[in-house]
Amino acid sequence: MTIEIHQLRYAVATADAKSFSRAAGALNVKQITLSRRVQQLENRLGVKLFERSTRGAEITENGRPFIEQARRIITDVDNLRTTASNVSCGLQGRIAVGYCSPLMAGNLRLAISDYLTKFEDVQFDGVEAGLERLFHGLHSHTLDVAVAPIGHREDGISSRRIWSERLFAVLPNDHALAEREQIYWQDLRREVFVVPASGLGPIFGNLIAARLTEQGKRPNIILQDTSLESVLSMVAAKRHISIATEASQGIAWTDLRFVEIHDLTGPARLEYSLYWRADNDNPALQRFFNLIEERYPG
């Protein structure tokens, strides 16, 4: 029985995306090609990997251990390729950093820029993904470190608080609140919010719900399966508003207004931590820690 590496990639991508169409989009292949290769893989294994429905593709219990093993195989193959490439380019070492916040501006962009400048001999791989995929990457050794909001605890994963970023309401230019210098959570209680379904979107959704749920009535929050940039473009159409950190102001949004949100204690902020495996002894990771300690001493 021959199993090809691209079949493993298709299966793992489908498990991560929980959808054949989204997995195909992420890998830039036709959906019919991806779904056919996964079906062929299932036939060769004699195991049903996914439950298919109109909502997407959910991994089966029998498929879960296979997907985990496939993920490790892909990681090993990619690491071999990276090592070979690094040797040919004269590079020494590699670090994979995951994050779920935008790199338009802010502390994360500065930290990564500093690292790339100071350690030119290290291969730097950035991975933008949701929290579930980031922590899966840490456990499976595909990521060395992740930058994500505080409050997540998992066995074998260490963490350290690093920085915080101010939160802003993202409004159309002609919104009734757009001319204010600051607003409070309660000023937004009648609004309809749109946030991404991945990245920081679910965290924003939980935060909005926590601040604005009253007497059992939850705020109106729409999750869109698209990027933060696309969500902010929807706000310009004047049907919804959104939430973003100060890092999202790294580019000019001519049709939008970012207004700082306050609570009773001052500006609302989103706190971030570094997360990594306690047994990760990658020298390139230690260099990253040293740089973070210099810029943001604990």
Rank of each mutant, 00 (worst) to 15 (best):
A209H: 13
F50S: 06
N79M: 04
L264S: 14
I112S: 12
S158I: 00
L80F: 03
T226C: 14
L171R: 08
A84P: 06
R109L: 09
P219A: 01
E128R: 15
V122S: 01
N79Q: 10
A252V: 11
L171W: 04
Q215A: 11
V147L: 08
N107E: 12
L41N: 03
Q69R: 04
G130M: 11
A84Y: 05
T75D: 01
P283V: 03
T82E: 01
H136Q: 12
Q186A: 07
Q186F: 09
L256N: 12
E61Q: 15
R269L: 04
S248Q: 15
A84R: 05
E293M: 08
L228I: 03
G130I: 07
L171V: 07
R44Q: 06
R190I: 03
K30M: 05
A70F: 00
N290Q: 10
I3C: 03
V194A: 06
A84I: 15
V127H: 04
V170I: 04
G25A: 06
E246Q: 13
T82I: 03
K217H: 12
T2M: 02
R166P: 04
R71Q: 09
V47S: 05
A24Q: 11
V12M: 10
Q92V: 09
H141M: 12
G216P: 06
R257M: 13
T14G: 00
V97P: 03
Y272K: 04
A244V: 14
D78Y: 01
Y115V: 01
A237I: 09
K217G: 05
G106R: 05
S273P: 09
T213M: 08
L177H: 00
A57N: 11
E181A: 12
E4M: 03
D16N: 15
V77E: 00
N43A: 14
P283Q: 00
F50I: 09
I74E: 00
D187R: 05
D263H: 12
K217D: 04
L274E: 07
R277V: 03
Q31H: 10
Y184A: 13
Y115W: 09
Q31E: 13
M1P: 00
F289C: 05
R52Q: 10
E181V: 04
H6C: 08
D16Y: 10
D225L: 07
Q286S: 08
S113D: 13
A26W: 13
L200P: 13
G98W: 11
S101A: 12
G250M: 15
I112R: 07
P196V: 02
L256T: 14
S230G: 07
S198F: 14
V29A: 01
L291S: 09
F20N: 00
R71F: 07
N282W: 02
K238R: 13
Q215R: 10
D76P: 00
I243N: 10
E214D: 09
K18P: 06
L177W: 09
N107P: 15
F50C: 05
M104I: 12
E260I: 14
V47H: 08
T265L: 05
H136S: 08
